[in-house]
Amino acid sequence: MTQGLLIDHVTKLWGQTPAVADACFEVPAGQFVALLGPSGCGKSTTLRLIAGLDTPSSGRILIGGRDVTALAPAQRGISMVFQSYALFPHLNVAENIIFGLKVRKLPRAERDERLARAASLLGLKALLDRKPSQLSGGQQQRVALARAIVAEAAVCLMDEPLSNLDAQLRLEMRREIRALQQRLGMTMVYVTHDQVEAMTMADQIILMNGGHIEQIGTPEELYASPRTPFAAGFIGTPPMNIVHASFLTGAPHLLPVGAAADALIGVRPESVRIGPAGLAAQVVAVEFLGSDTLIETRLGAISFVVRAPGKISVARDETIHLDWRPTDACIFDTKPH
């Protein structure tokens, strides 16, 4: 049943302002794609456009090669998990899960069979008679997932499904959703503002900013070679350090090959070594995290973070020398393209 998804030059305008501007991407069947970006970047709008809850101002949406742009949500072959779960408060867990199957008038035997399968898959068997208000956040989340699974839709959409859970549970559900998706071979579009979620779960990440797609790539690609300073700053904790090439005139050996004089240079905190020579920086703060140490330094007016393995003893206001391999640095053109 699982199918691919194609977003073809889709634009959504609210009045004159584009919420999504000329978005193009493809989700191959069975892949997990994360729509990642800060709040207001258009990722949720994109999801709602795919779901058919909003209609695009222009462009086409294809599911399994079929143009669904003009179709009603129910006719698109999608299921969706909402941020607030959208469980029906007056129905018990079982009724919530099979709500859609009942609406579509599936025979009772098939309904029961699918319910049993989904319930055992998500460990809900003991909770089927409960009302949503009698469930914990994590359990409600499972019910919402079960409801999305029983539909056996071509594409499953998720709108920040983990944002209402505590950190421990989020970690657990992250693994569980990913495992479920791989086991059932679902095509999944997953909206999140949490880069860790996107990095750990997705086959592909679509990074959005201000309604535009900033970069599309695997988590490794986004991490290793961000194409824009925004992408560099959004992925990774702490984010990539970005300095103007002119800062490096004192240590030209740190400049990557081919960097223009007015380019921006990006360096991951973990690529930086503290050495006897290199770029002089003043220590502002030191944070010991256990496995490694974060050292915040100041390079003139800008802040520059170094992640060093183990425990490093440096004092505040001390001057240290930063060193990295030029091949580990990224170049961002400042010229508009």
């Binding site: 058919g52 959208a86 539909a151």
Partner: peptide, 11 residues
């Protein structure tokens, strides 16, 4: 959101 969820389910 309940209306949207129901709508998605074809109600």
């Amino acid at each position: 959101v309940l209306a949207e969820a129901a709508n998605l389910e074809g109600a």
